[in-house]
Design a protein around this nucleic acid. Structure first.
Lengths: 142, 142
DNA sequence: TATTGTTATACTCTATAACTATA
DNA sequence: TATAGTTATAGAGTATAACAATA
């Protein structure tokens, strides 16, 4: 079997284990402000870069029907807004409101401010990990 | 601001981004056999190593009341079994059934067999990542 | 008194299927 | 015909609060 390809498998297994273990451990989630999925939406939505509903469903790896209710709830809280797409009248694009942009900034700040699980790595190891993850996530989600 | 501590924050942010992006993309989940949370339970439960319900709730970072229904469903499918704890009569320990053990083995195999997102790293980078993640996950979850 | 697990309740997330309005 | 988004429905995950049994 895997002679040479086993490291990718092992790394994948460790990453899966990591994100299973960390599920729901975001500051905004713990404070009850946002659900994990809502965090994802605010994370994907960059200010001034509207995203079609369909694209959001893809990035969530879920059925399109879920996005309707999800966006309904975020819109009811004034965090996002639906806009008609210029090119295709079937499409609705999603954008952050000023309030949503502020919460997104707090979310990112909260993520960066909670590096607890990574404290056990040396600074050099942390830099290595950043480099590897950046390559891993390159040209993804945008 | 962060002079020196920023790499941990950056790495943390990238890991969060990664697991948000990969949520639900496990073979067993895609095939509709298990939910992400059920995967976590089977992952945590090693054969022959019973785990108290309370400990399961901790590892899921959720309220203990959820574990009741979660375990009910897994037990109804014959994957896990509740056993009284030898020491404390309040405690119920959870163990895999033979059927659960088999599904767990398939789950782990499926995870290892799906390293697609990691193919973009060189073999050397993959080994580096494995080393870092192993240090990251060391003495956790057991 | 504190802890383990349960129940009741309410809300969110998720998939499937059927529908509409566009393309 | 195909696609974007919605609605209806049902099942699963989640938190809070109250409870029984045990420590």
């Amino acid at each position: 079997m895997n002679a040479g390809g086993s490291d990718a498998g092992r790394a994948w297994q460790l990453l899966v284990r990591f994100f299973l273990a960390q599920r729901g451990r975001l500051a905004a989630v713990e404070q009850g402000e946002l659900s994990p999925v809502q965090c994802h939406v605010l994370h994907v939505l960059e200010p001034g870069r509207p995203v079609p509903m369909r694209q959001l469903a893809d990035s969530l790896a879920c059925d399109a029907s879920n996005v309707t209710g999800l966006v309904d709830r975020l819109e009811a809280r004034g965090l996002v807004a639906r806009r008609p797409s210029p090119g295709d009248r079937r499409v609705k694009e999603l954008d952050l409101t000023p309030s949503g942009s502020r919460l997104r900034a707090e979310l990112l700040k909260g993520i960066a401010a909670r590096p607890n699980p990574l404290a056990r790595l040396t600074p050099r190891e942390q830099r290595l990990l950043v480099r590897l993850l950046e390559r891993l996530l390159d040209d993804r989600d945008r």
